[in-house]
Structures are given as structure tokens and as C-alpha cells.
Design a protein around this nucleic acid. Structure first.
Length: 269
DNA sequence: CGACAATGAAAAA
DNA sequence: TTTTCCTTGTCGC
């Protein structure tokens, strides 16, 4: 379930289970075996996250760079670790815990320099203390591209995925097709601070909830939403269902090969 | 810009 | 058995 909040949560969870320990490192699937052999029983010294990129530092040397892509998954468990299945790209195991990584787009050993290059090509991340949200606005306010596409562009803002983009635009009543240059500074400040709050809560709860307290199913007398991603949302994957606020139909469309969801009544140009 | 490929698992048909 | 997915690099026009 990878948007930025997931990756920052993983950074915390890898640290909680393995920081300052010297885990056994293996690649049962084989695609990361050479690097795993180098890292086996090395100390995990840091973890870091920027947008959807996760970094694990071993010793004072190289980093493991992980990107989950669309369906990479990470599973934590208590020791003793069960026999790994043959899709496990990377397993860490110490005396108390194990963690399995499956299906990542990227799992590679990189240098400090290469890591810096990744940070340099990513935009500000609402979950990072060093984020400069005006840098994102500088690009958005000059662009004719739709705000919905810009929010998914990791060079402009890092960590926002398909759920957060749909939900934050709904929460601010902004039409996803509005060009970036028509977003006012006030609107951008509000969007950014909302993303900071929503994504922090996402890290805390390990799921995406975007519905304000006054609009929860309990408050509105609706049945709670049952969805495989687990959170409560306004529009994401609610195509053709009634809008929680106005009752109109939620619409869906393809935008840059992704499913976009919005309420045409509540979200105006 | 759109199409497509790549990775894994689980839900829908 | 097919479809779907919270991603993104690449390729071709």
C-alpha cells in the first residue's frame, strides 16, 4: 500500500526492529544475493525516507535503496522467522524479529552520492522536516498542467499518491483539472498544510483517513466504509456512489494513466 | 502526451 | 482465469 506515509512508517518500523543490531541479511529469491552477502551481519545504522523512497544504512558505508512500486510489500514478524517463500527479495532477521520485502521495483545497493542524487530529483516531502513547500509552489504556479497531475509528479512534491491527491483536492473544493498556474498562494498553503497533517496521521495509523470528524459514517448515520485499503475517504474509489456532502455522483476518469476520482459539484474550477 | 513493461498477490469473474 | 492496484521509468510519436 505504498504512498509516502507507508514509506515513512516503514522507515520507523525497520528502525524499531533492527536499528543498532546486526541482522542476518538474505535474498531467498536470489535477485539481491550478492549485496545481501556483503551486508550479512553488518550493523543497521540509520533508516531514511523521502517521498516513496526508503533507505537503509548499513555500517557507515552503503545504503540499500528500496522503492515498492505499485505492489511491493513488506511484512514484519517475530522471531523465529518462518522459511521464506521464493518471492522474498530481501529478508532481515535478528534474535527478536524478521522482515520480508517482496515485489519492489527497486532494491539496490547505492553510495552516498547516488542517494544524494535521488534526493535532488525529488520535490519537497510533506513528511520531512527539511521540506520547502514554496519550492513546490514555484513550479506549480508556472505550469499549465492540471493540478491533479502536478500533485502526482514526484519532482514537484514527493510522497503524494493517487489517494492523497484525490482526497486533498476534494477537501479543498478544487477541480482536479484546474491548471497549476490558477492555484492561488493561499490555496497552496492550505493544500500543503493539510497534506502535512493527513500524511502524519497516515504514518501514525498506517492507513489513509481523510474524512473530517463531522462527516464520518457515525456522524452522518451511514454504514462505515468497507474497503481493502482500510481507511475512510470522500472520493477515492467511490465512482458512481453518492458524494458524502452533496449526494451527487462521484465521477472517475483516466488522468495520465491513473484513475482520478472527484465530485464535480463540490470541486470547482 | 499515451502505451507499455515490470514486479506479486488478492479479489472478482 | 482475469482483473486490479496507493508507481514510475522508458519508448515512440
Amino acid at each position: 500500500m505504498p504512498e509516502g506515509h507507508t514509506i515513512h512508517r516503514l522507515s520507523q518500523d525497520y528502525s524499531a526492529a533492527f536499528l543498532r543490531t546486526e541482522p542476518q541479511v538474505t535474498s531467498p529469491q536470489g535477485k539481491f544475493s550478492d549485496a545481501a552477502a556483503l551486508l550479512d551481519h553488518a550493523e543497521l545504522t540509520r533508516t531514511d525516507a523521502h517521498g516513496k523512497h526508503l533507505f537503509l544504512r548499513f555500517r557507515e558505508a552503503d545504503w540499500v535503496h528500496i522503492h515498492l512500486g505499485l505492489f511491493g510489500k513488506v511484512t514484519f514478524g517475530d522471531a523465529p522467522a518462518p522459511p521464506p517463500t521464493d518471492t522474498v527479495r530481501l529478508r532481515l532477521a535478528n534474535s527478536t524479529s524478521y522482515v520480508d520485502l517482496r515485489g519492489p521495483t527497486t532494491c539496490a545497493l547505492i553510495t552516498d552520492t547516488e542517494k544524494r542524487a535521488i534526493h535532488d530529483r525529488l520535490g519537497p516531502d510533506p513528511l520531512r522536516a527539511d521540506a520547502d513547500h514554496q519550492a513546490a509552489y514555484a513550479r506549480i504556479s508556472r505550469s499549465r498542467t492540471t493540478v491533479a497531475a502536478l500533485l502526482m509528479d514526484q519532482k514537484i512534491i514527493a510522497g503524494v499518491g493517487n489517494v492523497y491527491r484525490a482526497e486533498v483536492l476534494f477537501r479543498h473544493g478544487i477541480d482536479p483539472y484546474r491548471p497549476g498556474r490558477d492555484i492561488t498562494p493561499t490555496e497552496w498553503d492550505a493544500l500543503w498544510s493539510d497534506l502535512v497533517a493527513l500524511m502524519r496521521e497516515g504514518v501514525r495509523n498506517n492507513r489513509i483517513d481523510t474524512v473530517r470528524p463531522e462527516h464520518t459514517p457515525e456522524a452522518m448515520g451511514r454504514p462505515p466504509r468497507v474497503d481493502d485499503h482500510g481507511g475512510e475517504v470522500y472520493v477515492y474509489r467511490r465512482a458512481n456512489l453518492p458524494c458524502h456532502l452533496c449526494g451527487g455522483e462521484i465521477r472517475t476518469a483516466d488522468l495520465a494513466a491513473r484513475n482520478l476520482f472527484w465530485c464535480p459539484t463540490c470541486q470547482r474550477g
